[in-house]
Design a protein around this nucleic acid. Sequence first.
DNA 1: CCTACCGATCGGTAGG
DNA 2: CCTACCGATCGGTAGG
Lengths: 206, 206
Amino acid sequence: MTQVASRADGRRAAGQRSRAAILAIAVDLASSEGLEGLTIGRLATEARMSKSGLFAHFGSKQGLQLATVERAREIFTDEVIAPALGAGQGPTRLCGVLNAWLSYFERGVFAGGCFFIAASSEFDDRGGPVRDAVDGAMEAWIEFLEQLCAEAVADSAIPAGDPGQLAFELNAIGIATNWELRLRRNADAIPRARAAFERVLAGGAA
Amino acid sequence: MTQVASRADGRRAAGQRSRAAILAIAVDLASSEGLEGLTIGRLATEARMSKSGLFAHFGSKQGLQLATVERAREIFTDEVIAPALGAGQGPTRLCGVLNAWLSYFERGVFAGGCFFIAASSEFDDRGGPVRDAVDGAMEAWIEFLEQLCAEAVADSAIPAGDPGQLAFELNAIGIATNWELRLRRNADAIPRARAAFERVLAGGAA
DNA sequence: CCTACCGATCGGTAGG
DNA sequence: CCTACCGATCGGTAGG
């Protein structure tokens, strides 16, 4: 029963490949032009498809935006969170994540810089499912950082301090790094960020 | 000769009032919907004017965007920079600016949060005069912060440290505060920012 | 997955 | 500062 792929299975697989190819373009486009600037017409041109052919994959512009946010979240997880999870304990893990985060900025994993920082700024004054998806991804990120800080404090690897305050300060440094790299085109942001991370982790947070 | 206002003077004054009224709406609209989302049609509706009547003030959408950035810069200067300039010396001045900056975030001086953080994110991947205007405003801000840090170090009010690194870290905290307030709707960002400012200024920067 | 089409809105212009 | 208009593009639909 499972040996022979049916015609329907072949169609479904092709559809999934097509969808994946569209989303690979969409995340880069949205990171530079915004999730509203991601128009169906332009995306169709870049994916060499008809507008309505592309449209059929997502049902609405909002569906396309939600799928794009979800795909960006997978990429962020693969690039920043997953590599550090396998390696080491509390404090090593925290340093691993911070290094992976800087590397993600530096390599330009998304064509227009950090997808989620851009999407935060674009959607922070709106309501609706897209804003909720962006906020949900960011909440998970901040909670993850906070948990790593709590582990590092528990291991006495860094001075005692409020994990929430530590996570706020570490997150601030990362956001500013993306800003320096993208707007100011200042490559010094990377060493600056490293020095700032070290000071936060060495100093403890009230 | 200067006693009697000519008909032309009256017209010019009315034109300037109209322009100022348009830009007051434009900065708020752009801070929430973006400088591209600031469409001439919608702005005209909110200003109770015809599209072409509004258009005539600026000549092009880019002209409108540039005028909006300039007006936002004046507001930022009035709210954050000017108040602290009159009062006190080096370190007092630095604290005054940081407090005024937090107050500016907290009061929501622009309807959609910090105009320049939003515009940075929107235009960082483009070229052209609007990007240059945003970058120019941000460069002036960072240099101003750096100068205040250098003064505070020179006055021995804070431990010796690289003013550029100090300014990077202080700026990071402000950007993250806007992000916490707008996306995460987390009012704790204000006390968190105050604690972070104090730690940066107490610790010195390598 | 396509062609062909819809009404709405975009930035911008003509002419007054 | 207005009315009336332009071509282009938007999100989305019909029908295959």
